[in-house]
């Protein structure tokens, strides 16, 4: 060994140290990345909470928008009511449709059809929301004008892949022994499916639906072309256009009026709080239902 003079970099203990230092460096970068992600979330939520909180009062929640009247105390009650109608209608459209597709795929469909439908819904999930808005514009709005029905339909198209995926995933978890038990006592297949298999999936379907509702409640793009030109005041009739929270935030944030910005922040805070509560509920439902299915399988 002594004949060859090793350069310091080639001494094994130094190389090991170098590798360790490099490893430390990469670990530090991973910590930094996590810190950056948490920082940005914190900053966004903090900005919204700080600016929105002071605006949240009874007037904001119970009075509605009056355009071009800055002196009148204004709220966004019309947008809250509208969002409620839109999301409710969308859920009513997407939920049965999504569950039925999932039932067909998991319980009846032959393998090639199964993957074709799965792929189709994956593609649908990837279609930009603004394109779906334009699609509904061409399909309904051009002929019949803007309405909450059109807006809700656009939202339902966005919800559909979520509901489908959630249902099909829990259906796959339901143990075959339950299906066999149903058929074994002589129940026909449809009764086994509706009476034994589907009830097992309620928790999972609720989780998926809650997540889909949280997602869709904040969607602006599909509503711009289908349900954005709403008259003043609270409206419950879905055959006309109604205001909604995300569209209100979009319009108010594009305005030059500082009082409009203040209301945009408050509406954004309400939206974030709603989504936070919905996500937490979904998480709680998910753990509960998984435990239940596991127990049923035993």
């Amino acid at each position: 060994m002594s004949a060859v003079e090793l350069s310091p970099l080639h001494r094994p203990q130094d190389r090991l140290r170098r590798r360790r230092v490099f490893n430390r460096g990469m670990e530090a970068l991973a910590w930094l990345a996590a810190a950056i992600a948490v920082f940005f979330l914190g900053v966004v939520v903090w900005s919204v909470a700080q600016r929105g909180w002071s605006q949240l009062n009874l007037d904001f929640l119970t009075k509605s928008q009056v355009q071009f009247e800055p002196a009148v105390p204004q709220g966004l009650a019309n947008a809250f009511a509208g969002s409620l109608v839109l999301v409710g209608l969308a859920t009513a459209m997407a939920l049965p449709f999504g569950i039925l597709i999932a039932v067909y795929v998991n319980e009846f469909a032959p393998r090639p059809i199964r993957s074709a439908i799965g792929l189709t819904l994956d593609v649908l999930a990837g279609v930009p929301a603004i394109v779906i808005g334009f699609f509904v514009y061409g399909l309904i709005v051009v002929a019949h004008g803007q309405s909450a029905y059109a807006g809700a339909f656009a939202l339902a198209v966005i919800m559909l892949p979520f509901v489908y995926r959630a249902t099909v995933e829990v259906l796959a978890l339901v143990p075959n022994s339950l299906r066999e038990a149903g058929l074994g006592v002589g129940a026909p297949r449809w009764r086994t499916t509706l009476g034994i298999v589907l009830p097992q999936t309620i928790g999972g379907v609720l989780t998926g639906t809650t997540l889909a509702v949280a997602r869709v409640a904040g969607e602006t793009a599909p509503l711009l072309f289908t349900c954005s030109l709403a008259p003043n005041g609270i409206h419950w009739n879905p055959s006309g256009a109604i205001q909604s929270v995300p569209v209100a935030v979009f319009e108010l944030s594009d305005s030059a009026e500082p009082s409009d910005h203040a209301r945009a922040w408050a509406a954004a805070l309400v939206l974030i709080l709603f989504i936070l509560v919905a996500s937490l509920t979904a998480r709680w439902l998910a753990t509960r239902s998984k435990r239940k299915i596991m127990r049923a399988g035993r």
């Binding site: 979330l41 966004v44 939520v45 919204v48 904040g218 969607e219 910005h261 945009a264 922040w265």
Partner: peptide
């Protein structure tokens, strides 16, 4: 937290983006 960040609506991120 990371999953919550994914759930924030784009209009809220846009509002934050333009005003903050």
């Amino acid at each position: 937290l990371v999953e919550t960040l994914a759930a924030i609506p784009s209009v809220v991120i846009g509002l934050w983006g333009i005003l903050v």
